[in-house]
Simulated scan of single mutants.
Amino acid sequence: MLALDNLHPQVHPSRTRPAALDPAVELVVGDVADPAVWDTLLANVSPAVVVHLAAETGTGQSLTEGTRHAHVNVVGTTQMLDALVRHSRIPSRIVLTSSRAVYGEGAWEASDGSVSYPGQRSRAMLESGTWDFPGLRCLPFEATRTEPRPTSIYGATKLAQEMILKAWALSFGVEVGLVRLQNVYGPGQSLSNPYTGIVSLFARMAKAGRTIPLYEDGEIIRDFVFIEDAARAVIAVATESVPTSTAYDIGSGEATSIRELGDVIAGIYGAPKPVVNGAFRNGDVRAASCDIARTTRELGWSPQWPVQRGVRTLCEWIDTQELPPLCG
């Protein structure tokens, strides 16, 4: 097994081989957008299955560093595909870890049952404290029902990855497995990366005895999926004989508000109760959760880590780590 990673300093400050990486895995340090890296790698390797995890992932960061996100996510994907053809190394299957960000705000339902796609919340809405779309309730994402309508540059690049892979694969007879991950968290995640996610950020703040700040009104909805559940889903799509014509939504199946998350984490550390501060981030979606019924049925997979258990396990791991300074 071989892994290609650029060990980006935002995620790997020491730029050294991760200690948790299985010794059986050969690590090649390189940039997925560099054709020379692929030429060197594919001169001696003929992959049967490619699991494409490489991506720039900061939703907010992509608003100001869109070129970097597009270069890695889009050009990195096309460079990989071009190299596979150039070296006649066509795999049987490519699995892409995509994102719930491709949906944007997703579909919302009115009281009469009609469904619409209200799109991105405007700055005027956010500044007035109009957090929800009046008269509508959010629906969980489901790949066969919810239209992808990204509201961030990051989400747009992930959708581009999906479309590029599917178009290429049809021409070369390659199966494509798409997994649209919700908010993944758990032991081993970077604690120095400010774009890692709010679970580890909340945990670090509570551990330091600080009050967790809740954006908007504290009722932002997310689906927090534990890393082991996400990994098992990716492995299933990579190794099992499963339908690959549509994407799989990978989440816990629980819609959790950031208020609920904050309360759980504050309780673990005996920190002050989280406080709503009314702040907001442009481009943030109000609600993101998913319906995993089809995923569990077709993959034979189901999440094993409820949010409370997963969060406690993450906190136990954080307590064993040497933590970088907490900013803010």
Rank of each mutant, 00 (worst) to 15 (best):
D132Y: 01
F133N: 13
F133G: 07
P134M: 07
P134A: 00
G135M: 10
L136M: 15
L136T: 10
C138Q: 15
L139I: 13
L139A: 02
A143P: 10
R145H: 14
R145M: 15
T146K: 05
T146F: 01
T151V: 14
T151H: 03
Y154M: 01
A160G: 09
Q161E: 15
Q161W: 06
E162Q: 10
M163V: 14
I164H: 11
L165T: 04
L165Q: 01
K166M: 09
K166S: 09
A167N: 13
A169G: 05
L170T: 13
L170M: 11
G173D: 11
G177W: 01
L178Q: 14
V179D: 00
V184I: 11
Y185T: 02
Q189L: 06
S192M: 05
P194C: 02
P194T: 02
I198T: 11
I198W: 02
I198F: 06
L201F: 03
L201V: 13
F202P: 02
F202S: 01
M205Y: 08
M205K: 15
A206G: 04
K207I: 05
K207V: 12
G209F: 00
R210P: 15
T211G: 07
T211H: 09
I212P: 01
P213D: 09
Y215N: 14
E216H: 05
E219P: 02
E219G: 09
R222M: 06
V225Q: 11
F226H: 15
F226S: 01
E228H: 08
A231W: 00
V234Q: 12
V234N: 04
A236M: 05
V237A: 02
T239G: 11
T239A: 07
E240R: 15
E240F: 10
V242H: 01
V242A: 00
P243S: 03
T244I: 09
T244A: 02
S245H: 09
S245M: 09
T246M: 13
T246V: 12
A247C: 03
Y248L: 06
D249C: 12
D249T: 07
G251Q: 08
A255R: 12
T256W: 02
S257M: 03
L261N: 00
L261P: 06
L261R: 03
D263T: 12
V264Q: 04
V264M: 08
A266M: 13
A266N: 07
A266T: 01
